[in-house]
Design a protein around this nucleic acid. Sequence first.
RNA 1: GCGGGAUUGGCGGAAUUGGUAGACGCGCGAGGUUUAGGUCCUCGUGGGCAUUGCCUGUGGGGGUUCGAGUCCCCCAUCCCGCACCA
Length: 861
Amino acid sequence: MTQSYDPKSFEASWQAHWLEHKTFRAHGPGDTDFDASKSKYYVLDMFPYPSGAGLHVGHPIGYIGTDIIARKKRMQGFNVLHPMGYDAFGLPAEQYAIQTGKHPSVTTENNIATFRAQMQNIGLSYDWDREFATCTPDYYRWTQWIFARLYDRGLAYQTEVPVWWCENLKTVLSNEEVINGRSERGDHLCIRRPLRQWMLKITAYADRLIEDLELVDWPASVKTMQTEWIGRSEGAEIDFQVAGHDAKIRVFTTRPDTLYGATFMVLAPEHPLVDQITSQEQREEVKTYREAAASKSELDRTDLAKGKTGVSTGAFGLNPLLDPLDPAARIAIHVADYVLMGYGTGAIMCVPAHDERDHEYALRFDLPILPVVAPRDGAQPEGCWGGEGLAINSPLWDGLATTEAKQKAIQELQQRSLGQPKVTYRLRDWLFSRQRYWGEPFPVLHCEDGTHKRVADEDLPVELPDMDDFAPSEDGRPPLSKVPSWVEVTDPVTGEKYLRDTDTMPGWAGSCWYYLRFMDPHNSDAFASKEALDYWGNVDLYVGGTEHAVLHLLYARFWHKVLFDEGLVPTAEPFQRLFNQGMLQAFAYKDPGGRLVSSDEVTVDGSEARLTADGTPLEQVVAKMSKSLKNVVNPDAVCAEYGVDTFRLYEMFMGPLAESKPWNPRDVPGARRFLERLWRLFVDQEGDSPIREDLLQASEGELVGEALEIERAWNPCLVRINDSFENFNFNTAVAALMEWLNTATKNRAGFRRDQAQRVVCALAPFAPHLAEELWQRLGHKAGTVSFAPWPDVDERYLGSDTFELAVQVMGKLRGRIDAPRSASKDDLEALARQAVADRLEGSTVRKVIVVPGRLVNFVVS
RNA sequence: GCGGGAUUGGCGGAAUUGGUAGACGCGCGAGGUUUAGGUCCUCGUGGGCAUUGCCUGUGGGGGUUCGAGUCCCCCAUCCCGCACCA
């Protein structure tokens, strides 16, 4: 009888064992088995939107990473919270419903079942008792409840705003969901259109959202992106009188110190004053320009390559610090679309000497250019110069440095009531409503008098009505408005009539607080108990892709801060450490014309790739996995062919978790071979015993001979495994295990039980099924290795008594000798001198560098 | 245009943070076990020249240093953000 490594024979049963025994159940406050003395560790994956396509091998790469971390933390004695759920409201299920008539709740449920099965098949150690989907009333009741808190704080309001409207999707989208005038989902054209919408006042938190980035351990790039997205800029608002009109134009500028250099002004085409101030002669031209600007797509308008356009209004503004009769005070007012209505005041003062955009415009329209800042070194800058220097041509602050000049300018303007300091943000308030069905209804009732009030907390949730026609109306009215029985509400006590709000919340709502629900997912009295919130605190480690660097992470931080202000959560920030995993790519093939070829048309022979049809040579490149290239790999198929542990190990062995790297099917068997060789170290394939008989003997006595060799290889290996948890470069941990196995295999006969047990423990996070199997075969009949103690490094066995000393002459390697670790610097130098004696002959040694444990370098002449 | 990250064998990637470049795996080559193929085992494998050995080599160029993949300056290519934000 042979017993070869056969993962199929035990992987599924260990998965069943974990589920059945609730091995990974996290016990929190209120649970009978809760042990408050244990330190908590909360490690969370960004939860997925359960799409119909299921998982591909790219999804689980982060999940496997966090699983390894969670498993190790458990073995280190932490109470680990490691949950999974589904971000289940959203457009795709609804679009699918419109096409097929299948209710989104049905397709969502089916998709969730697929995702769950796939994740359980990978052996991820989630606490499945905490699983939930954001689209269930139990959950969105609390999403609505949190919305009510925002509503009560005045952070949710309705207003008529120009919003992005997507005709294809029949809904408005937030700024963040529109890229260059097209929808992020589906890439449909979007237009600006004024509509009454729910807004969340995220701008009220802008400063704290910037400042509190200091409290978290996040990648610098993500912090930068968020900071830039919020886009805080300090400056001043200044009022310019319009000559001959009873009108003032308020501008925002970050450079009030350049006020004397303002030689013209520009209004955005949508600016409300344009009509009022435009002169008779210019009226027609301005009208044409504004119409053109309105019909231009955002893409055209923001296309920098096209150069600046604009027209004069024929009106003039007056520099507030100059005598109105001074000809220099009179500056032309233009309309140009390089000024955006949505930022600042929609009007600017233009200083072409010190602003590139104004400079370009001035040259084009032959407007005057007056320098008001000079470089400190006295140089004469050519063209436009945006740097800081000393003020010139500025009577009230001539000679002041830019920073002081700004302050002085603001002070002078304030004294004259002509302006004041102002902070402006690029961040806009969050457009929070969608004209869709598959989302959280707003818990808001509209009264007959036009006011609105929120639904009482005890009446939550406001459940979605059951419908079967989800198509939006042609006029853009939301699907929910088609259910009068749901919309019309009569107060049972007062008899007053109300209409329900028929918008729904955007897909981001549910994911703003799900990490809190995981702490206490079945609580029906609160979104989570105070005890659970206090114990679990915030997320220690949050892992996901960079695509959420701004939107999700900014929204969630905003909601969290509101809850913090309500005294409902104990921390200011939700995610203490953030880690972005890299994207999993795939090989693709390019034909000589540079076209990517679908992988089913390619024949690969060794390192040569050719077009199957006619043998055209192809170039191998790395690209995203995509359906069109047919290079998507399904994890189920990989697990079925090689086993789950092989799949997990390969995903980690590919490279550091943070890096993007290509899936290479050719490399997968290498991971499998490693597990087979490991198996053979433990199990005598020709025998009947579940494990080598000698591994059942208690280990006794000094470590000598082969056992000592194994031990000396093991401890450095364990150091490398431990180190790999710093930056999640588990590839080095797997490599260390492989190296150890090479040594251990050579010294197979000396392998001892105590060593075997430590190896199985260290292996457990990476290849948990194999580890459980070997642990049981080692005689741990009832238990699981999941809570066995993580092994310690034994410093005594970290190195051998000798090391390889590199001997260099003039920095070039000239010899390698074995040297005792205990040797002094002088001993090492003597040994090295001996080793390269022939090379030193005839030259003078001017200097000797000795690095103990490494090398000796002779500098000669 | 601005900001960030990268660039190491045929491929994925290591490198104790300034100290023996290419660990580990894949692929490839040679040999062994096997009736044969596969599996498995052993050895080799950056490039060049060569009898031992030598030269060269981390995208390109320059610099600091006894010593540079690692630090500094310049350049190229690729990827990711942002992109008229006043």
